[in-house]
Design a protein around this nucleic acid. Structure first.
Length: 911
RNA sequence: GGGCAGUUAGCUCAGUUGGUAGAGCGUUGCGUUUACAUCGCAAAUGUCACAGGUUCAAGUCCUGUACUGCCCACCA
């Protein structure tokens, strides 16, 4: 101990070993903390479940930010003595992962992986990939210093989570909330699966917009290929142009020859858009489908699951619809039906959020969750909702937040959340992919009804069951003999992640974990998955447990590059957290993501910023190095008994500043103001402790105890932000057996927070900076010592007591302090509050420069005096403003007037 | 079309109850005194987007405008 530390902190030399020590200590696990006495058995729990990263690859800088913020909260609460659990896990991310593996297999030369490998072998490949990806992710989490309880790690697709999924599915089905229906769905022809509404993204695109003669009207469309079977024109009921046509039928020529079309009137048609007349395509548009239902029109599918024409398209059957567009336009043009083409139409193309392929709306039989259906809730711990009450899922979702039981931070996201719920349609949960939770529904082949979807010989009657059913409830027969078929579809990945807060804690078992740690305390995530995930967790938890999943939701912003662009491989502006850790250390990487931003807002990151925090890490290291080197105390106890009566002004000042910092930092962390907390801590550490107090300590000496106290407190405060360097310094002082991560969070213990000491110390600081400034202005070399005389007035005693500090920090040879001093010839006079300082520059005074400087000061003071005089002469101000404000302003005026007269006097002396 | 943010120093951003604007980086000058050049000391720079309003007093509250970004809906 107390060995000489290296001059520079090299994070690479320590980080991995420190993480290993933490992990081996078991302290990431709250049960171990209780066992070893670090946490009281009855302590209040603090829980965060890690938003499970997708096993699609590696973690990006956004994940790093998430880890930094969550680890900050977790370490803070652990040190505070809470029973703290941070539960890790990963998400199977069904479509994303399957797509990625398919792509990799194709690159390896397997042309059609699913066909060639079959379901089982293909899933083996996916699982292999997911495992590798998982290992990478776990390693990255550790590199970041995340104090996750790995003993509780979960995966959205592991067996316990699968049981939870099946159990919830069954419960929802029994409550009538899950149904199978034939509806228009978003279909991705590439992923070959349905997508939920919010999995569809919109991309602006310039495209051709065609106008065709359609019987008596002109219609416009960007997608002529869908118009094959259109035979209904819709106009607005009040549109004068088409009034006469309403309700008529007529024969006309169209793509495939003569058709009979009719005209209906409906509000859905916008007279201002295009020609005000439109045809409808019930099978390939949500809106048209609604209209078709309303007017009882045929719904004929013309484009199939591969994006090709169905046999409804006659000669075009089997051809790719989109690719046939020009051909179809040509047919119509040849018939003389093409009116004109707008080449610069801006179209909002809907695309798959995972692969970017254009989404094709088409009718399909799928599983849905009904969000508007009433059911009676069995248990409820929700405010305003009683057990047995009739509710809908929508109501549960909005009530949980509206009641204030869940608090979203920043608050403005409430509005986004509610508007999403208002517009929510039934949630399509079945996906036609292999990787994921297979739907717990079976069909019994010997039953009579035949399903086209499931295959010939398979019953249409679903058997919804947590486990494979032994008996068919429809026919009453045993199901063995291979005549039982499970629905081949899998569930939307968000179905399982919606259960995350409670499935990870062991539900459906009634576990101790579930009782202890649920509802979780904070859900921390990026605002971009508010709908995808946060809203769905609220849905699933309120429904399943009748309780909220978390008390607070804290949303962080996106990490962008230094120009505010999204980071992407194609732009080459990606900052890889692992690179950053290797180059600057995990602590610097964390700080760069924690400081200098505000909740819910995007933040810009640059390598310079990270480098800046690396510098700070090193600064802290060196401060510690200095304090440790000057400490004779061995095996220090952090609960030091300071000899209060011996404190100097500087001691009192730094201790009261430290106290204020402890208070501010704690409050800021509690209020999710992590950036503010870190900035205050940095300012204290660097600008007050390092720049002032450590320098003073060198002058005043005999500070071992107080420096130890400050350092230990500081390390604790910094630990949640930068766990590695603080832990390393701590171990340099106490050895590796005593870990900082489980030390208790500092509280306010200094009984002598003397307010006056702040003001008095500020006076000393002002005198020193004033002298330094004058030295720099007059080009006095830093190591040249000069004489100074201070005319101190009432502050003579204060200055005399601290003359050593002034002499040292202002680099003076001889300092004379008098109540009323006389300015020597050739000395420069400085005004410092109500005092004056005379510096002997040995004739080195630059008269011109001094005149300029003083003139400037006089001008500023005069301007201020004028403003203040006007203000105080204003009767309305004096009468209306609070007396304290008036008094303060009066005092300021008096001080400035005094200063002004001194400045003027000096100026005239100079001339 | 609806909604939400933002507009403050060259850059990135703070500014939490309204009381003569702050930090980091960068820039300029000087510099190695018993931690630290990944450092120290000092300096410069702002009609707080614009226009109204409330108030004794507005970066801060209200209304409107402009621009930027994002979200949602939708474009037949």
């Amino acid at each position: 101990m107390n060995k000489e530390l290296p001059k520079a902190y090299e994070p690479q030399n320590y980080e991995d070993a420190i993480y290993k020590r933490w992990e081996e200590s078991g302290f990431f696990n709250p049960d171990v903390c209780v066992e070893k006495g670090g946490t009281d058995a009855n302590a209040k729990p603090f829980t965060i479940v890690l938003p499970p990263p997708n096993v699609t690859g590696t973690l990006h800088i956004g994940h790093a930010m998430m880890l930094a913020i969550e680890d900050l909260m977790i370490r803070y609460h652990r040190m505070k003595g809470d029973k703290t659990l941070w539960l890790p896990g990963t998400d199977h991310a069904a479509i994303a992962t399957q797509t990625k593996v398919e792509k990799l297999l194709i690159e390896k030369g397997i042309k059609d992986p699913k066909k060639e490998l079959g379901r089982e072998k293909f899933l083996d490949e996916v699982n292999k990939f997911a495992q590798a990806s998982h290992d990478t992710i776990v390693n990255q989490c550790k590199k970041m210093g995340s104090s996750l309880d790995w003993s509780r790690e979960a995966f959205t697709l592991d067996e316990p989570r699968n049981l939870a999924v099946r159990t919830v599915f069954k419960k929802m089905y029994d409550d009538g909330l899950i149904y199978r229906g034939y509806r228009i769905v978003n279909w991705c022809p590439r992923c070959h699966s349905t997508l939920a509404d919010d999995e569809v993204e919109y991309k602006e695109q310039k495209t051709k917009f065609y106008y065709f003669k359609y019987g008596p009207v002109i219609i416009g469309t960007a997608r002529p290929e869908t118009k094959f079977l259109d035979k209904v024109i819709v106009v607005h009921p009040d549109d004068e142009r088409y009034k006469k046509l309403q309700g008529t039928k007529f024969e006309m020529d169209w793509i495939g020859g003569k058709i009979i079309a009719k005209v209906i009137a409906d509000q859905a048609s916008d007279p201002k858009f295009g020609t005000g007349a439109m045809t409808i395509t019930p099978a390939h548009s949500f809106e048209d489908y609604e209209l078709a239902k309303k007017y009882n029109l045929d719904v004929v599918q013309i484009i199939d699951e591969d994006g090709n024409f169905t046999d409804a398209a006659g000669d075009f059957v089997g051809k790719n619809a989109q690719a046939s567009r020009e051909e179809i336009v040509k047919i119509l043009a040849d018939k003389g039906l093409l009116e004109r083409v707008d080449e610069n139409y801006i179209h909002n193309l809907s695309v798959c959020y995972r692969c970017g392929t254009a989404v094709e709306p088409l009718p399909s039989k799928q599983w849905f969750i009904d969000v508007n259906k009433e059911f009676s809730i069995v248990n409820s711990k929700l405010k305003n909702i009683k057990a047995g009450q009739k509710v809908t899922l929508k109501k549960l979702m909005s009530e949980a937040v509206a009641s204030g039981q869940i608090e979203i931070i920043p608050e403005r996201f409430n509005k986004t959340y509610f508007s999403w719920i208002d517009n929510l349609r039934d949630w399509c949960i079945s996906r036609q992919i292999w990787y994921g939770h297979q739907i717990p529904v079976w069909y019994h082949g010997t039953c009579q009804e035949v399903s086209e979807k499931v295959g010939p010989g398979v019953s249409e009657n679903p058997i919804v069951s947590i486990d494979e059913p032994a008996v068919c409830p429809y026919c009453g027969n045993q199901t063995d003999g291979g005549d039982l078929h499970q629905d081949p579809d899998t569930l939307d990945t968000w179905f399982s992640s919606g259960l995350w807060t409670f499935s990870t804690l062991g539900w459906p078992e009634k576990t101790v974990d579930l009782q202890t740690f649920h509802p979780t305390s904070v859900l921390e995530t990026g605002y971009d998955i508010l709908f995808f995930w946060v809203a769905r967790m609220v849905l699933m938890t309120t429904y399943t447990l009748g309780d909220i999943p978390f008390e607070k939701v804290y949303m962080h912003g996106l990490v962008r590059d230094e120009q505010g662009r999204k980071m992407s491989k194609s732009l080459g502006n990606v900052i890889d957290p692992l690179d950053s850790i290797a180059k600057y250390g995990a602590d610097a990487t964390r700080l760069s993501l924690l400081l200098g931003n505000t909740p819910g807002n995007d933040t810009r990151l640059s390598e310079e910023k990270i480098a800046g925090f690396r510098n700070f890490t090193n600064k802290l290291w060196n401060m510690a190095r200095f304090i440790i080197a000057n400490s004779k105390i061995k095996n220090q106890n952090s609960k030091l008994q300071l000899k209060i009566q011996n404190l100097t002004l500087a001691d009192k000042w730094i201790l009261s500043r430290l106290d204020a910092t402890v208070k501010d930092v704690s409050e800021n962390i509690e209020n999710f103001q992590f950036s503010a907390a870190g900035e205050k801590l940095r300012d204290f550490t660097w600008s007050e402790l390092a720049d002032w107090y450590l320098e003073i300590a060198k002058i005043e000496g005999d500070k071992e105890e107080i420096l130890q106290y400050i350092l230990q407190t500081l390390l604790k405060l910094w630990h949640p932000f930068m766990p590695f360097v603080t832990e390393q310094i701590w171990s340099e002082m106490f050895g590796i057996d005593r870990m900082l991560m489980v030390e208790s969070w500092p509280h306010l213990v200094i009984p002598t927070v003397v307010e006056e000491s702040l003001n008095d110390f500020n006076t000393i600081q002002l005198i020193i900076t004033t002298i330094r400034s004058a030295r720099a202005d007059n080009k006095i070399e830093p190591n040249k010592k000069i004489d100074a005389i201070i005319s101190a007035g009432a502050k003579e005693k204060l200055l005399t007591e601290n003359s050593a500090i002034i002499t040292g920090l202002a680099r003076l040879e001889k300092l004379t302090i008098e109540t009323k001093a006389v300015k020597p010839e050739n000395a420069v006079a400085l005004v410092c509050g109500d005092m004056e300082i005379y510096l002997d520059l040995s004739g080195a005074v630059d008269i011109e420069k001094e005149t300029a400087r003083l003139t400037k000061e006089v001008e500023a003071a005069e301007k201020f005096v004028t403003v203040m005089k006007n203000k105080l002469a204003n009767a309305e101000f004096v009468n209306n403003a609070p007396p304290a404000v008036v008094e303060k302003e009066t005092q300021k005026l008096a001080e400035t007037e005094q200063k002004l007269s001194k400045l003027k006097e000096q100026l005239s002396n100079l001339k």
